[in-house]
């Protein structure tokens, strides 16, 4: 079976396509409806969870640590659900962190630009030219956000298996094209792709557990082996390694933890100064 990840340059338009694709395939729709649950599990208020997904929202009162934990919590919830297979996922930035999984079909829906301008003008109650400028600014902010947070440019077509422009193709035709494409054998799950997804789910689960104490961890998993990369001062290295091993070792599915600590040169320099 397969998973379809849909992203769009216009939230509402993409959402409608995602709903139609879910209905046509019989797959479950995974969308922002899970954010309430994410908020309860992470003990981060739901508006902040939502804010972490919105590139254009103000960063005032929203420290990067909270944002990172909010996004990691979303990732954890998404990855856990994607293991169930037969999913259409939309609005949770999954196209930026579910990478290298062959049975995941990634779609980018591009809304008609003039329609976006017109919608923006209505939403913001501004003229067409002002709306055009605002839209340009919004697109730039989204691109910057995806690069800052995930190191990936979500506007780059090469990130996707298929890019559909609704200025040329009707939404119904887009849905049909997606449904047909996902039926290709290359997008069917296999032992290897399922393992890739499980590894990603485990790594984010471990990362979330470690983030309670350490925000600067990068985690990868291969089967039941987990590799944690982090930074520390020389004097902290041993204790941090032990703590990470103990914390990660408690997570279900983990049998071996490898910790790589590199020297935190910035903190070291700050201490010397």
């Amino acid at each position: 079976m397969s998973i379809i990840l849909i992203s769009s340059d216009h939230y509402e338009t993409g959402r409608v396509v995602a709903q139609q694709v879910a209905a046509a395939t019989g797959y479950a729709l995974l969308d922002r409806g899970i954010l309430g649950e994410v908020a309860s599990a992470s003990r981060i208020p739901e508006p902040k969870i939502l804010k972490s997904l919105e590139p254009t929202s103000s960063k005032v009162g929203f420290p990067a640590k909270v944002r990172d934990r909010a996004l990691a919590s979303i990732q954890g919830a998404v990855m856990a659900r994607l293991l169930d297979d037969k999913m259409v996922c939309y609005g949770l930035a999954a196209h930026l962190y579910v990478l290298g999984v062959s049975h995941v079909l990634k779609i980018r829906i591009l809304c008609n630009e003039e329609e976006r301008v017109s919608l923006m003008a209505t939403e913001r109650k501004v003229g067409i030219e002002k709306a055009r400028k605002l839209l340009k600014k919004q697109d730039a902010a989204e691109k910057r956000w995806s690069l800052d947070v995930f190191g990936r440019d979500e506007t780059n077509p090469s990130q996707y298996d298929m890019v559909i422009s609704l200025s040329q193709i009707e939404p119904d035709e887009a849905v049909n094209a997606i449904v047909e494409t996902v039926s290709y054998r290359k997008f069917q799950s296999m032992t290897y792709s399922i393992k890739c997804l499980r590894d990603k789910e485990l790594s984010i689960r471990v990362k979330l557990a470690l983030m309670e104490k350490y925000n600067d961890v990068d985690v990868t998993a291969d089967g039941a082996t987990v590799v944690v990369r982090t930074k520390a001062l020389k004097r902290e290295k041993r204790k941090k390694t032990e703590n990470i091993r103990a914390l990660a070792g408690q997570i279900q599915g983990v049998s071996y933890v490898e910790v790589h600590v590199v020297r935190d040169i910035f903190r070291q320099a700050a201490e010397k100064a």
Partner: peptide, 20 residues
């Protein structure tokens, strides 16, 4: 040397399954 592109190619060509 498992990679997504090879896995997809193998499945497209009719492999039953693919394991790393």
């Amino acid at each position: 040397y498992a990679m997504m592109a090879v896995a997809r190619e193998a499945m497209e060509k009719g492999a039953f399954d693919f394991i790393a």
